[in-house]
Design a binder for these strands. Structure first.
Length: 357
DNA sequence: AGAAGAATAT
DNA sequence: GATATTCTTC
């Protein structure tokens, strides 16, 4: 008797609590709604949390005692923890809102929403963490012990600071900040000064790559831009020349003529290009490009600002799926590609014919 | 010395 | 396949 009564009371409390949560969540959702495009999963999560709690209220005999789970904002937790993730964050929504540059509003934000029917909860969880990762400019060291200070600094700087502060390079654009240590030599973890350690892999996120492309565009294309210039233009702090160089190398490799794999699946992208002085141009504009191709050094045929997108990863690359159809479409159109950098660049006359060893 | 590009390693 | 590192050249 008494027990059931206390149970009842307990239940009422619980219910009340749930109501509060729901209200808070709904308010939260209204706020997030504004950023629906930027935070689609966030919205979804909140919605689901609301539903879950509503269900709970309606008496689905959930045994959970809504105890605080100790999920640590990263990848843990199941269904309940969602609240924990969102409630405390409430005030922060204004900090990292729009870091989009003005030019390309990509609608690739609606990331893969495919698997949505069955195991919503944990799937959703995974999605969320992935999404979070992709939002960051790059992944932060996780396995490697990093001092808390460094991490927080990295977070803040990475997410907000370098974005678009002063685009005209007025201030100290050359911000190289000790790329020497990424091995987590921070005081916490023992065994400092692991110098021979390999650098932590940097994952080139969406945003990072977009900046890369942006810089490339301004500099006149992947074959005339140099890693250093790119890095400076990107204004991403912590980014090293080597990283840019490596990425550029990959990019160049990818943007070469995509060989004849997949003969002509989409309007036969590969066949409309023709080599003009070492430069791939659309066949139609062949003659015109020929006229231009002689002096492309300054602003060049790459059309720094002219085309919304200079060149993108080929459609098959991993980045390709992040690119919306619009992009892939225009990547077939007015793109010019250099097949042989040595010949196309007139700034640097590298005759690497004698280089063979 | 330092940067870029290619080659190679992980 | 993507990134890091090394090697070579300039």
């Amino acid at each position: 008797m008494i027990k059931s009564l206390s149970n009842m009371k307990n239940y009422n409390e619980k219910r009340e609590k749930c109501c509060e949560y729901i209200e808070a969540l709904e308010e939260e959702r209204r706020k997030i709604n504004v950023f629906q495009r930027e935070l689609p999963l966030c919205l979804e999560l909140v919605t689901q949390a609301i539903e879950a709690y509503k269900k709970e209220i309606s008496g689905t005999t959930t045994d959970t005692l809504y105890g605080q789970p100790e999920c640590s904002e990263q990848t843990t937790g199941e269904c309940g923890p969602v609240l924990d993730l969102f409630l405390p964050i409430k005030q922060s929504s204004a900090s990292t809102d729009e870091e989009e540059e003005e030019e390309e509003v990509d609608e690739d934000d609606d990331v893969e929403h495919e698997s949505h029917d069955t195991g919503i909860d944990f799937v959703d969880k995974n999605m969320k963490s992935e999404w979070l990762k992709s939002v960051q400019l790059w992944n932060q060291p996780e396995a490697v012990p990093v001092s808390k200070w460094e991490r927080s600094q990295q977070e803040t700087q990475t997410l907000v600071e370098p974005i678009k502060e002063n685009d005209n390079g007025a201030g100290g654009s050359a911000r190289q900040k000790t790329e020497a240590e990424r091995g987590g030599s921070g005081g916490s973890g023992g065994s400092s000064s692991r110098r021979g350690q390999r650098k932590q892999r940097r994952c080139w996120s969406h945003e990072l790559h977009r900046r890369f492309l942006n810089a490339l565009k301004q500099l006149g294309g992947p074959h005339v831009a140099t890693p250093k210039q790119i890095r400076e233009l990107m204004k991403v702090d912590g980014l090293t020349n080597d990283e840019v160089k490596s990425h550029l190398q990959k990019y160049r490799l990818h943007t070469r003529r995509p060989s004849q794999t997949v003969p002509n699946n989409r309007d036969s992208q590969t066949q409309h290009f023709v080599v003009v002085g070492g430069i791939w141009v659309p066949q139609a504009s062949h003659s015109k490009a020929n006229a231009v191709a002689s002096r492309e050094t300054t602003t060049g045929i790459y059309g720094p600002m002219a085309s919304p997108l200079p060149s993108e990863w080929p459609s098959h690359s991993s980045f390709g799926r992040e690119i919306s159809e619009e992009r892939s479409r225009c990547s077939n159109k007015g793109i010019v590609r250099c097949s042989s950098p040595a010949m196309s660049s007139s700034t640097r006359t590298k005759t690497k014919d004698a280089k063979m060893s």
